[in-house]
Every structure is written in C-alpha cells, then in structure tokens.
Simulated assay, not measured.
Amino acid sequence: MARTRFAADRGLTNRMLTTMFLLGLVYVVFIAAMVAAGVQWWLILLVVVGFFLFQFFGSERMALYSMNARVVSPEEAPALHGVVDRLCAMADMPKPKVAIAHSDMPNAFATGHSRKKALVCVTTGLLRRLEPERDPAELEAVLAHELSHVAHRDVAVMTIASTLGILAGFVSRFALQFAFVGGRGNNNNGGALLGLAVILVSAIVYAVSFLLIRVLSRYRELAADRGAAQLTGRPSALASALTKISGEMGRIPTGDLRKAEPINAFFLVPAFAKRRGISLAQLFATHPPLEQRLEQLARISADLGRGA
C-alpha cells in the first residue's frame, strides 16, 4: 500500500474498522430478511453490486455536476495549482485533479475512489474570501484538510459504508408505497405481514447504518483537521479558515445551500450548520461542532509550541 507523509491515525482506523464490522452485522440481518421475504439472493447481490459500482465510480461526476464544477488546468488557476503542488510534495502523494465550482458558497471537498483517481474542488466563493494571492496560508490549510481525506481513503470507505444503508432506505420506501398502493384489495394477511416485516427491518437497518455512518463522518472530519494541522505546521491557519467560512455560510441564500446538500458530508464545513450545544440534531450531523474543531486545533497548536 502506498504511503504518504500524513500521520497515521490509529483512532480513525479503529473507528473505521469498528463501524464497518457493526455495519456488516446489520447488513447480514437485512439480507437475511430479504431472502426470508422471498427475494432471490442473486438478485440482492446483483442490485447491491450494481448500486455500489455506480456510487464508487460515479461519485466524482455526480459531485462535479451537483456543484456546477469543472476541472481546471495550471494555466487557468496557477495559484490554486501551486498550493496543491506544494502540499502534494510535502505529503509525498500523487497530485489529484483540481476543480473549481462556480458557487458563492465558501467551501471545498474531495472525492475519488483512490489516491490516484482523486479530485479536490474549491468554490469561487472560497477563493474570493480567503484571498490566496495575498496570503495562501488559509487556502493551504483547507486543501491540506481535503488531501488528508484522500490520503486516508475516506471517500472510498464512506461509499462502501453507505451503499447498503441507502439501498435499505429505498427498499423501505418502495415497500411502504406498495403496502399502501399495490396492497389495496389484497386479503392475503400473510403477505401483508411479510411486507410489514420487510418495511420494519429495512427501516431499522437504514436508521442504524445512518447513525453509525454519521459517527464515522464526524470523526473523519476531526482526523482530517489533525492531518492538515500536522502537515502544514499551522493549526491557526485552519482555525482561521474554519471560523471565516462558518461565519460566511450564514449569509448564503438557503436555495443555494440546498443545491449543495447532496454532497454535504464531503464539504469542509456543512452547508447547513447545526445549532450550538448538545442536541438530538447533533446525532445526525455529518460534521462536529465548530467549537470542538477549534478546541482540537488549539491543543495541536499548544503541542507544536511545546515541541519547538
């Protein structure tokens, strides 16, 4: 396995393995329930594999399309490419494709199923607010965060983890529609009970996988922050960028934010910020609270200062 100079994160690795193990148990129950309901195992396998391949290899195109983004050359964006080149040299990793999304929302994301097939994208709103021509430190910190996701293969792991959960959500939805529409006039009580069982199992699988993936997503954001801070040696630059971007996000029209919602989990900062404090909504969040991220960066800054 190719290595980079991004520090290995045992906490992230352990959480990924634990989450994948728990998801595996949940998905075994789901598949067993589908087989018990009379669905052929080979059909389940075909649908799962097809859905996974579509997500795995189509994530880049879907992300670019949803954000109205396009890949840019070094001639088109020399400052942006210069920062990516420098970070990739520091991290000793292949350079990903670089894209710019025409959106006033200040944000960035990474996608791609491997380090050699990765892409990092920034919005025009981010470039305008961070002003890399004047001081590239904040943009460098943001891109280091995204490259940390690439180095730790976060996109591939999240795609694998979410495939059956999304499929379970679809099954639950369609089974529910069939129960209310297709099942009318059908007096087969056994079939109705079986259909309700499928709905219940699918809903439980979706809910459990949803929560597990959200826990993993929040931790991978903290891990990417750590990786960026350690690679650049400037945690304060990332803290400044996060504060600036989060503050600006509240000024973006809701309609523009909703257009970006499908890839919300991949952003540096969530399009829809959660309220401060511990709440039930935080269980469903894809990102940790800004305060938690800033506290972690402050600790890293203090550790770097003591080690100087």
Rank of each mutant, 00 (worst) to 15 (best):
A108Y: 07
N189W: 11
Q177H: 03
R153S: 09
L127Y: 06
A271Q: 05
S301P: 01
E291T: 11
P96H: 13
G255D: 05
S66T: 11
R276A: 13
P136K: 08
V98Y: 03
Y65M: 14
M249N: 02
A110N: 03
I166M: 12
L64Y: 05
G255P: 00
L46W: 05
G11T: 12
T243V: 03
F272W: 04
A308L: 12
R234L: 03
A302L: 10
R70L: 09
R226S: 10
A308T: 07
A144V: 11
F266L: 11
A36W: 14
R184W: 12
R299A: 14
V29S: 07
I44T: 08
N14D: 07
N187I: 13
L194A: 12
A241P: 08
A224M: 14
L87Q: 04
D135R: 08
L80M: 06
L176W: 14
G247V: 05
G185E: 07
D256S: 12
Y219E: 10
Q296M: 14
G82P: 02
A229G: 09
M67D: 00
F21S: 10
A118K: 02
M90K: 15
L46A: 14
F210W: 14
V155I: 15
G24I: 06
V49F: 09
P262S: 04
R153G: 00
M249C: 06
D85A: 09
V48F: 01
L200P: 00
S59K: 00
R276S: 13
E140L: 09
G169T: 13
L283H: 04
R129T: 15
M90A: 15
K117S: 08
A89N: 09
L127V: 06
E140Q: 10
L22Y: 01
D92G: 03
E248W: 04
L196Q: 03
H113G: 01
T18H: 00
L147Q: 01
S172M: 14
T159D: 01
A237L: 10
T18V: 10
G247C: 03
L283Y: 11
M90P: 00
V208N: 02
T111Y: 04
M1P: 09
S114Q: 06
F210I: 15
R258W: 07
A156F: 06
T18Q: 01
A265L: 02
L45Q: 02
G191H: 10
A228G: 08
D154S: 09
P96W: 04
Q177I: 13
A197L: 12
L87W: 04
V98S: 03
I263M: 14
C121I: 08
N189M: 15
A179M: 11
L64I: 09
E131G: 00
V157T: 11
D92R: 13
V83K: 05
F170I: 15
A99M: 07
A151C: 05
F284L: 15
G38Q: 08
K274P: 00
A69T: 03
V71D: 11
L304C: 02
F174K: 00
V120T: 04
F174D: 13
L297H: 07
R258S: 10
F170V: 14
L23K: 02
L238C: 03
A273N: 03
K95R: 15
R218K: 15
A101G: 11
M1G: 11
S103P: 00
A203R: 07
A101Q: 02
Q40F: 02
H102E: 15
R275W: 06
L297P: 09
K117E: 11
R251F: 09
L147C: 06
P136N: 02
